[in-house]
Simulated scan of single mutants.
Amino acid sequence: MEKMQVRDLMRPIDEFPRISNHATLMEAVEALQEADKEFQAGRSPQRILLVYDEAGHVVGKISPMDVVQGLEPNYDNIEALKHMPRYHLAPSVVDSMKEELLLWQRPLAELCSKATGVKIGNFIKLPTPDHMVNANDRMDKAFHWFVVGRHDSLFVKEGERIVGVIRFSDVYRKITQTMRECPAPQ
């Protein structure tokens, strides 16, 4: 397994359902439901929903958590402050700011009406460097990002383009297979 490359365990982007970054939040909800239905029925090997731009390039993925954050986008402003070293905000201060901004205080029906007007391209987060590996990288780099970032999947690049996804479930399956194939101690 030491010589294995990321490309050996990655899944090409063609295997994943996709949605345009111009789609609405409601369209994303419907696409996520369909992806989950196909996965549960065994007709699809995964339920990760990739997001593509005007040129057809994958620019990210969307999850149920992204949908919830898309309904209340003000969280991003507070969470960004928490990670800026010069602010050194304690978690209690961040919680206080959330309460002052009345996050999730509006009726849910009002939030839901946003679902047909908000485009997922307005809130989807682009993959960060700790969420990407290169197809030719050795697997130890992917192991590192899975453990440190606690990601369930990583984007795989060739050059500047995302060409696949490596899922932790596939990596874990390979690890356990390798462990079972180890010779028993004498």
Rank of each mutant, 00 (worst) to 15 (best):
V156M: 02
N77M: 12
L154R: 00
A55N: 09
L89F: 06
D66G: 03
D170A: 12
M179V: 15
V59A: 09
P73H: 02
I78Q: 00
P64L: 10
V94A: 12
F146K: 00
K82F: 07
F168Q: 06
R150P: 01
L102F: 09
G60P: 01
V58W: 01
Q69V: 03
F146R: 00
R86Y: 08
K141A: 14
I175R: 02
L101Y: 11
M132W: 03
M65H: 07
S96K: 14
G164V: 08
C182E: 14
V94H: 02
I120W: 03
P129Y: 05
G121L: 11
K61Y: 09
G56K: 03
Q105T: 15
V51P: 04
M179T: 14
E54M: 07
V133D: 03
A142Y: 02
T178F: 04
E160R: 00
G56F: 02
D130F: 07
G121K: 01
M65F: 06
A142F: 06
D170M: 09
R47W: 07
V59K: 10
N134R: 13
M132V: 15
C112L: 15
G70V: 05
G164Q: 04
R86I: 13
G121E: 11
L50W: 02
V68P: 00
Y87F: 15
N77E: 12
H151D: 03
R47S: 14
G60S: 07
E72I: 07
T178I: 12
D137Y: 08
P45K: 13
L50K: 06
M97G: 04
L126S: 11
K98W: 05
V68D: 02
Q46W: 08
V58Y: 00
L111T: 09
H57G: 06
P183A: 08
P129G: 10
I48L: 15
M84Y: 04
K98L: 14
S44P: 01
N77Y: 11
F143Y: 11
E181T: 10
M139S: 04
E181G: 04
A109N: 10
E72V: 10
K119C: 08
I48P: 01
S153D: 11
G60I: 04
S92N: 09
F168Y: 05
P85D: 12
N77G: 07
A135K: 12
C182L: 12
N74Q: 12
L111K: 02
I62Y: 00
H83R: 13
S63W: 02
I175H: 02
K82C: 05
V59I: 15
Y87D: 05
A55I: 05
V165N: 01
L102E: 15
V58R: 03
Q46R: 13
Q69R: 15
F146M: 06
E100V: 15
V147T: 09
L101V: 14
L108P: 01
V165I: 08
T178M: 07
V133S: 04
L108R: 10
K82M: 09
C182S: 12
M84F: 06
T116G: 05
A80S: 12
L50F: 04
M139L: 15
K82T: 11
V94L: 08
